[in-house]
Every structure is written in structure tokens, then in C-alpha cells.
């Protein structure tokens, strides 16, 4: 099944019809998407800025991450579910959109950055490693938000 077939299949689902028929449903889901993504962005940026040595100095990194992780995951779950739902409104449009594709790729890279951080950087507890991980994460997430905003202008 090609991406094109998948898009066609998705666009005939009851959810897709519900979204395209309603004048307000897309906007409501979009608003909830913003709530989820700001929770993800805010909590991750806080950890990144801490890794860069800019905020919450002198506090334990592991404890900070453990404290914020439930917030990040809650926000991510909300953003992922609402984001996936929004795709149903125009599957062909999103699948062929440069910024949508780029955003998904950047999300994968952000996930890889987390894996690398936990596996290799955190156990060594080196200052430089922390700073590089934090900087990469911050740059990726700012680009993800930017790409997300650009989808709305190009679709």
C-alpha cells in the first residue's frame, strides 16, 4: 500500500468526514494540540536550558528530569493524539507537505537525541556532553515548532 493509497483510505474514514463537515471541530482539536505542544516544549526546554547551565543551576539533573518527565509525556501524548487526528482532515495535503514531512523527521531525530543522551551522555556526566545534548535538543524542538507553524501557511 503506497502513501497515496493510505491517504485515500484515511480520507474516507468516518473521522475524516466528521472533521471536514464540521466548522469548529478542527479548531477545537488544534487548540488542544497547542496546549499539548506547549507543555512538551516548555518542559523539554527547561531541561535543555538546565543542561546548558543556564537555569536551575546546582540542582540535580536526574531529579529535574524525573520531576518533569510526567509533564513532557502528558503533553506529548496530547499533542500526538490531536496531531494524528488533524491529519485525517486532509491526509493527501499533509503527506505531500514539505514541512509536515520535515517535522516528522525532526521528531524522530529528537527521539534519537533522547536515546543518545540517556545511553551515552548521562552516565558519563560530562559538562560538555550535557551542553551539546541540551543545545541539539533545543535547536531541534524550536525547528519542530517552526515547521509545525509553517504547515498552516503552506497546506
Amino acid at each position: 500500500m503506497s502513501l497515496e493509497d493510505l491517504a485515500t483510505t484515511l480520507s474516507t474514514t468516518p473521522l475524516a468526514i466528521l472533521l471536514t463537515d464540521s466548522t469548529w471541530l478542527f479548531g477545537v482539536i488544534e487548540a488542544v494540540h497547542v496546549m499539548g505542544l506547549t507543555l512538551v516544549l516548555g518542559s523539554i526546554a527547561l531541561v535543555d536550558l538546565h543542561l546548558l547551565g543556564l537555569v536551575e543551576r546546582g540542582r540535580d539533573t536526574t531529579a529535574l528530569i524525573r520531576r518533569l518527565l510526567p509533564l513532557t509525556w502528558t503533553g506529548f501524548a496530547v499533542a500526538a493524539i490531536t496531531g494524528t487526528t488533524l491529519v485525517f482532515a486532509n491526509p493527501q495535503g499533509y503527506f505531500t507537505n514539505f514541512f509536515f514531512r520535515g517535522k516528522l523527521l525532526l521528531l524522530v531525530l529528537a527521539g534519537l537525541n533522547v536515546v543518545v543522551f540517556h545511553r551515552f551522555v548521562q552516565p558519563r556526566a560530562g559538562r560538555l556532553g550535557h551542553r551539546v545534548s541540551g543545545g541539539i535538543s533545543l535547536a531541534l524542538w524550536l525547528t519542530i515548532v517552526s515547521f509545525g507553524r509553517w504547515i498552516g501557511f503552506t497546506i
Binding site: 497547542v34 496546549m35 505542544l37 506547549t38 507543555l39 516544549l41 516548555g42 518542559s43 526546554a45 527547561l46 509533564l71 524550536l142 515548532v145 517552526s146 507553524r149
Partner: peptide
């Protein structure tokens, strides 16, 4: 985007 980043700062601080 800057507006959204600032919203994120409010959201995480309030949370």
C-alpha cells in the same frame, strides 16, 4: 513561533 515559545514558558511555569 516566538509567541508559541513564550506560551510554552507560561504553561510550564504555571504547571
Amino acid at each position: 513561533v516566538v509567541h508559541i515559545v513564550a506560551i510554552a514558558a507560561v504553561v510550564v511555569s504555571a504547571a
